[in-house]
Amino acid sequence: MTKRGVVTIGMILVGAVLMVWSYFVGAAPWCATGVECSNPRVEWAPALFVLGVVVAFSSALYYSIAKDK
């Protein structure tokens, strides 16, 4: 596999992991009965979710634009 393919798949995986992690672990839990439900477990986790989306779709940019060495 070429370096291009590895990096692209890597970016998609990193993006996906960021999305899944921030949604299920980092962001506020799915509940409505306590103060802890109102705060994200990790602050700025929603921004990380968006970053995950951006990284995953940026892989297309990399795949298409990167120069062959």
Partner: peptide
């Protein structure tokens, strides 16, 4: 409410349910 719709839909967690049952807005 113990199952407050307002808390569920709040996008930023400004509306929250305290452990003593009071629902408040930050």
């Amino acid at each position: 409410c113990h199952n407050p719709p307002c808390v569920k839909v709040c996008p930023t967690g400004a509306r929250f349910h305290r452990d003593d049952g009071i629902v408040l807005t930050d």
